[in-house]
Computed example of a mutant assay.
Amino acid sequence: MSEEQSPVPGEVEVEDVVDPTAVRRAPRYGRFIGVGIVLGLVVALGVGGSWLQSDAAESVFKPGVYFTVILVAGAALGAAIGGLWAVLADRRSLRDR
Rank of each mutant, 00 (worst) to 15 (best):
V65Y: 05
P7Y: 05
V14H: 06
M1T: 15
L41K: 01
R91V: 00
W51R: 13
I33D: 03
G49A: 15
A26Q: 06
A56E: 01
S6Y: 04
P20T: 00
Y29H: 10
R25N: 10
G82T: 08
G40S: 11
G34C: 05
E13G: 02
E58A: 04
V38S: 06
G30P: 01
V18K: 08
L88F: 13
D90S: 11
V35D: 02
E15C: 01
P9D: 13
D96Y: 00
L41F: 11
G83H: 05
V42Y: 01
G36D: 08
V69H: 01
A56H: 11
L84C: 04
K62W: 00
A56S: 09
A26R: 06
G30L: 08
G78T: 03
F61Y: 11
G36W: 15
P63K: 13
S50R: 13
E3S: 13
D16R: 04
P20Q: 05
E58M: 10
E11F: 05
G40T: 13
E15Q: 08
R25F: 11
D16Q: 03
D90W: 12
V60H: 05
P9N: 08
L77D: 04
V69M: 06
R31K: 02
S2A: 15
P9Q: 12
A79H: 00
I33Q: 06
L39Q: 03
V60K: 03
T68K: 09
V43F: 12
A73N: 02
A75K: 06
K62A: 00
E11C: 10
L84S: 06
L84R: 00
L94Y: 09
G64P: 02
W85R: 00
G64K: 07
V69Q: 07
V69Y: 00
G10N: 01
G64A: 14
Q5P: 05
T21R: 11
E58Y: 07
V42D: 04
L84W: 12
V14D: 05
D90Y: 10
P27H: 08
D96W: 01
A75C: 06
V47Q: 02
I37H: 10
F61Q: 09
A22Y: 01
R25P: 10
A86H: 00
V14K: 11
S54K: 03
D90L: 00
W85D: 12
V72R: 00
